[in-house]
């Protein structure tokens, strides 16, 4: 039920964002209609770079800490990494679409772009680790450790690349002196965009976790069935006698 409410509210807020973003808000003085990407691209990037990866890191820590260890945290980490891959790829795609007309190139070796691309590769590596067949506990341990090793790396990658080169415009909302450089209807639409994409993320996360839970249950059930079949193979005569 909660999942359904999440899904519906994300759909509604997304539709509102699209309506406000395309028809209601004015074009930008410098960027014209291109600025409308601002209602989608930063929210997606926020989910990809902070929310999803943050949840994956915390869930992995929770799994590794023996007192709170439970399959729940592994499912949460696995699901948020998968959703993070989708959102990181979307960040790169929407950023590319925005970069081509404004910067004149699809791709630039800018700090944030490079960090995001490396993050995508690192996340794909963790997914590759999860695909290696193993018993659930080993797989959970491997994946949690891989997440921790990668989580330590991402800030270092970010700062080294920032020093390396920077072209991307600085943050609009969360800048150093917390003075947003966006106003009026555009600011509200951007805020709505953040809410909508965040809701969408949590809905996808919840759906993904349900799939994970059902897969686990199915594997358990298959094992039980297989065991029962093997028992039944040796048992018919005994059953016949009993009847």
């Amino acid at each position: 039920m909660t999942v359904r409410i999440l899904g519906i509210s994300s759909l509604v807020t997304l539709a509102l964002t699209v309506w406000l973003g395309i028809w209601v808000t004015p074009p930008d003085r410098v960027q014209g209609d291109l600025v409308r990407l601002v209602y989608i691209h930063p929210p997606i990037a926020w989910v990809a770079l902070y929310l999803a990866t943050g949840i994956a890191t915390l869930a992995s820590l929770a799994w590794l800490w023996s007192r709170s260890r439970s399959p729940y945290w592994d499912r949460l980490a696995a699901s948020s990494i998968e959703v993070a891959v989708v959102f990181t790829a979307l960040t790169l795609v929407t950023g590319s679409i925005w970069g081509r007309p404004t910067w004149g190139v699809w791709w630039a070796w800018d700090a944030r772009l490079t960090t995001t691309a490396l993050l995508l590769v690192v996340l794909l590596g963790i997914l590759a680790i999860r695909r290696i067949p193993a018993d659930p506990e080993t797989r959970a341990r491997r994946s949690a450790l891989a997440v921790i090793i990668a989580a330590v790396d991402v800030p270092i990658i970010h700062f080294s690349v920032v020093w390396w080169k920077t072209l991307h415009q600085s943050a609009t909302v969360l800048n150093a002196n917390l003075q947003p450089t966006i106003h009026g209807s555009m600011a509200w639409t951007l805020l709505l965009g953040f809410v909508a994409v965040t809701l969408l993320f949590f809905w996808m996360l919840a759906m993904r976790m349900r799939i994970e839970r059902l897969t686990d249950a199915l594997e358990g059930a298959e094992l039980t069935d297989a065991l029962e079949e093997r028992w039944a193979e040796g048992a018919p005569e005994v059953e016949g006698v009993a009847r």
């Binding site: 590769v121 690192v122 680790i129 290696i132 790396d153 990658i157 690349v161």
Partner: peptide, 22 residues
């Protein structure tokens, strides 16, 4: 992390090289 796995030869570069980008 990748030792003892059948896919270790392909997995290790994939994991290690992006990590040592800095």
């Amino acid at each position: 992390l990748s030792s003892g796995l059948r896919v270790r030869e392909t997995l290790l570069p994939f994991l290690l090289l992006p990590a040592v980008a800095p």
